[in-house]
Lab assay of single mutants.
Amino acid sequence: MAAGGDHGSPDSYRSPLASRYASPEMCFVFSDRYKFRTWRQLWLWLAEAEQTLGLPITDEQIQEMKSNLENIDFKMAAEEEKRLRHDVMAHVHTFGHCCPKAAGIIHLGATSCYVGDNTDLIILRNALDLLLPKLARVISRLADFAKERASLPTLGFTHFQPAQLTTVGKRCCLWIQDLCMDLQNLKRVRDDLRFRGVKGTTGTQASFLQLFEGDDHKVEQLDKMVTEKAGFKRAFIITGQTYTRKVDIEVLSVLASLGASVHKICTDIRLLANLKEMEEPFEKQQIGSSAMPYKRNPMRSERCCSLARHLMTLVMDPLQTASVQWFERTLDDSANRRICLAEAFLTADTILNTLQNISEGLVVYPKVIERRIRQELPFMATENIIMAMVKAGGSRQDCHEKIRVLSQQAASVVKQEGGDNDLIERIQVDAYFSPIHSQLDHLLDPSSFTGRASQQVQRFLEEEVYPLLKPYESVMKVKAELCL
């Protein structure tokens, strides 16, 4: 049975990233139509530049190519590739079939990587351009969430054990800070992308030097003109047959890092959902379990974690691919890159769409948070109580021993009897502590235990987050809708 299948058929496997999760716009960027249309555009740009620099290419040939950029006979191309065992030459023939007058000058002087690699770089750039505003929107939604809850005390956790208090907004800023680093890295790697350009079979530009009869300047002009037509500021000066596969490492490393950030955020949300302090959106008709109707599973956060793990592992592909590119190139890269580049971007696209949807509907339960604080705060307040007693004339050592005994009794009630923490009640009825009984409410005010959390939130948002989001103001209103 021949390899390949009808990918629109229910009898043929289709990647869930495309069929179930990723956005239509990201799927289109990695589609065959987008790819092969870009090949034709690159052939047109090459012909236009070659004509401008004096090669015998007519206006009629150029116009014929322009008129057929979208006229792609995919069936013919597939048949040609089956016959020739070469995808680029299959599309040269297919393009030439609908451009008979231009057929002889299509791909003039070029090698397969002229269309293959340059198209990949265009796709990487455009895919990054799709991700950047999506990530900015996630940051914006979380920034709104953090600002609104900047002063809401909550129990902090280290080692997932109760620690000092923080605020809900401050905790959210930990998430935002990681995503801001990801946004900066995505922008950097996007701006650092260079075009492969017009380089020939081993990167020496020998074929173009021959076409222009040894004119170095025209060869350099050709490279520059096509690079500018493709919208790049610069091209690699040095290439082998391909652009260095280190570029793929750079791009997928940034995406993998984004995956790590999203995994951490969504894990926190899942843990908070278990504590009943916070939940992701839950639709009115949504079913959490087929057997347990009360369940409210954090399905979206779980999906993000599941896909983020996949995204983090994909960076190993370009690392290994770059390491086995012998001399000017081997074909070890080809099949692998067809999979890992598309999957990385479709996965990143999915987790950003999902995280935006989550961040637009996060639900906080202040009463649950308050109750958990009441359970733990008495123990945390013991040092403040000791200091207040010393100020009232008591002995630190005597007070410490009193607190120690009462704390152990209260802990026994919590752990052995399943009761509430009654340390404060014990202190309130103990005559030894009568000098500070009137101060206990103040000493137990949760806001006095959150330090500068709310001020940190305000400063972080104003100095770091809002300036970073400013270039994306025009796209901030787009909502994230999930079908599944």
Rank of each mutant, 00 (worst) to 15 (best):
A2S: 14
G5V: 10
D6I: 08
S9P: 11
P10F: 15
D11G: 09
S23E: 10
M26T: 06
F28W: 07
S31N: 00
D32A: 15
K35G: 05
K35N: 11
R37K: 14
T38G: 04
R40T: 03
L42G: 00
L44V: 13
W45G: 12
W45D: 13
A47N: 05
E48V: 06
E50W: 04
K66A: 11
S67A: 12
N68Y: 08
L69F: 08
D73K: 08
F74N: 13
K75V: 12
E80C: 13
E81Y: 01
K82A: 12
L84M: 08
H86R: 00
V88A: 10
M89G: 05
M89L: 03
V92R: 01
G96F: 07
H97T: 10
A103G: 11
G104F: 09
G104Y: 10
I105Y: 10
H107N: 01
Y114A: 00
V115Y: 01
D120R: 05
D120I: 07
I123K: 06
I123V: 14
R125E: 01
L128D: 04
L132T: 14
L135H: 09
L135M: 15
R137K: 14
I139C: 08
D144C: 15
A150D: 08
S151H: 10
P153V: 07
G156S: 14
F160A: 05
Q161T: 03
P162E: 05
P162G: 05
L165S: 03
R171V: 00
C173Y: 01
L174P: 06
W175N: 04
Q177L: 13
L179E: 01
C180K: 06
M181F: 13
D182P: 05
L183M: 11
Q184F: 10
N185C: 13
R188A: 07
V189K: 12
R190V: 11
D192R: 09
D192E: 12
L193N: 04
R194L: 08
R194D: 05
F195K: 00
G197M: 00
K199C: 08
G203E: 01
T204D: 04
Q205G: 12
A206T: 08
S207F: 06
S207K: 01
L209C: 09
Q210H: 07
L211Q: 11
D216Q: 10
K218D: 06
E220M: 13
Q221K: 13
L222E: 02
K224V: 11
K229W: 04
K229C: 07
A230W: 03
F232C: 04
R234I: 10
A235T: 14
I237Y: 12
G240D: 02
Y243R: 03
T244W: 04
V247R: 06
V247K: 11
V254M: 08
L258I: 07
V262C: 15
V262A: 15
H263F: 00
I269G: 03
R270I: 03
A273Y: 01
A273W: 04
M278S: 04
E280V: 00
E280S: 01
P281H: 13
I287A: 09
S290K: 03
P293Y: 03
P293E: 00
R296V: 13
R296Q: 12
N297A: 00
P298C: 12
M299S: 14
M299Q: 14
E302P: 01
C305D: 05
S306Y: 04
S306M: 00
S306Q: 02
L307S: 10
L307Y: 01
A308H: 03
A308Q: 04
A308I: 02
L311H: 05
W326I: 10
W326K: 01
F327D: 02
R329V: 03
D332T: 00
A335I: 03
R338N: 00
E343I: 05
A344R: 04
L346Y: 11
T347H: 08
T347I: 11
A348Q: 03
T350H: 12
I351K: 03
L352R: 03
L355Q: 08
Q356W: 11
E360H: 04
G361H: 13
L362D: 04
V363S: 03
V363L: 15
V363Q: 06
P366T: 08
V368Y: 06
I369A: 15
E370V: 08
I373S: 04
Q375A: 08
Q375T: 04
L377P: 01
A381I: 09
T382R: 02
E383V: 03
N384H: 15
M389N: 05
M389R: 09
V390H: 08
G393V: 06
G394F: 11
G394P: 08
R396D: 02
Q397S: 09
C399A: 15
E401T: 09
K402E: 06
Q409F: 07
K415Q: 06
K415V: 08
G419A: 10
E425D: 13
R426V: 05
I427P: 03
Q428V: 09
D430T: 12
S434L: 11
S434V: 09
P435W: 05
P435H: 08
L440V: 10
D441V: 11
D441K: 12
D445G: 08
Q455V: 10
Q456D: 04
V457Y: 02
V457D: 03
Q458T: 14
R459P: 06
F460R: 03
F460G: 03
L468P: 04
K470P: 06
K470S: 15
Y472K: 07
Y472H: 13
Y472V: 12
E473I: 14
E473S: 15
V475L: 15
